[in-house]
């Protein structure tokens, strides 16, 4: 079963008087439990596509269904609920909440889901261990290295048991060794938690981790090669 189905997706950005077509007719299906990479040069539309899949941006035209739900028909409250319950985000710039420590950052989505404090804490503790930051649980993000921050972000993305985890260039701000370890962690989590992962990159070196590669250029998906 496909967890994501996209048909004829177009996205235009107004830029002053002109219109920038960021996506120009994308068709894409992603199966459950996939570990997929979107690769393309800068400005090709990777972020735009991930944002639309992640329900934080919306198509100009075309159909987008996430977890079997057509998202264009929903209001902001329902869409926010989908983001909370179905999707996890990992950002290029980590985007942790600076006033919360590692454990608090990880349990944050659970508290938004109104889970009990004890339950949230237990689950967050399990994840902080899985991403190997047990000793840093009480640290604030500012006290962590880039790689450690991204591990926290991965834990936070996974804590709610989402259907899909989206990662927009998760390694772009990391050195190659750290980047590799992050991708290995993501891959391992994909195997443990059976979560669908989609990550974008313009670095061909990280492609070896992907099970499926989608190439995007000028807002269009290129013919898919066979998975590595």
């Amino acid at each position: 079963m496909n967890i994501i189905e996209i048909k004829g997706l177009k996205k235009d950005y107004p830029l002053g008087a002109t219109i920038v077509p960021a996506l120009r007719g994308v068709d894409l299906e992603v199966g459950e439990g996939d570990f997929m990479s979107i690769i393309g040069p800068s400005g090709s539309g990777k972020t735009t596509l991930l944002n639309i899949i992640g329900c934080i941006d919306f198509a100009t035209s075309g159909l987008v269904s996430v977890g079997g739900r057509e998202i264009t028909a929903l209001n902001d409250r329902q869409i926010t609920d989908i983001r909370l319950n179905k999707i996890g985000f990992i950002f290029q710039t980590f985007n942790l909440i600076p006033v919360l420590d590692v454990l608090e950052n990880i349990e944050f989505p659970l508290l938004l889901m109104k889970r009990s404090a004890a339950e949230a804490r237990k689950r967050a503790e399990k994840l902080v261990e899985e991403v190997g930051l047990k000793e840093y649980a009480a640290h604030r993000p500012a006290e962590l290295s880039g790689g450690q921050r991204q591990r926290v972000a991965i834990a936070r993305a996974l804590v709610t048991n989402p259907d899909i985890v989206l990662a927009d260039e998760p390694t772009a701000n990391l050195d190659s060794v750290t980047g590799a370890s992050i991708l290995e962690l993501m891959r391992r989590m994909n195997e443990i938690e059976k979560t669908t992962f989609i990550f974008s990159t313009h670095d061909a070196n990280v492609l070896k981790y992907a099970r499926r590669i989608v190439k995007i250029k000028d807002g269009l998906i290129e013919k898919e090669p066979v998975a590595a």
Partner: peptide, 16 residues
Amino acid sequence: TREIGTVRAIGMQRRD
């Protein structure tokens, strides 16, 4: 602003 974007993306409602 970016923090607001982050918490919204993670699933915090507008009201909150």
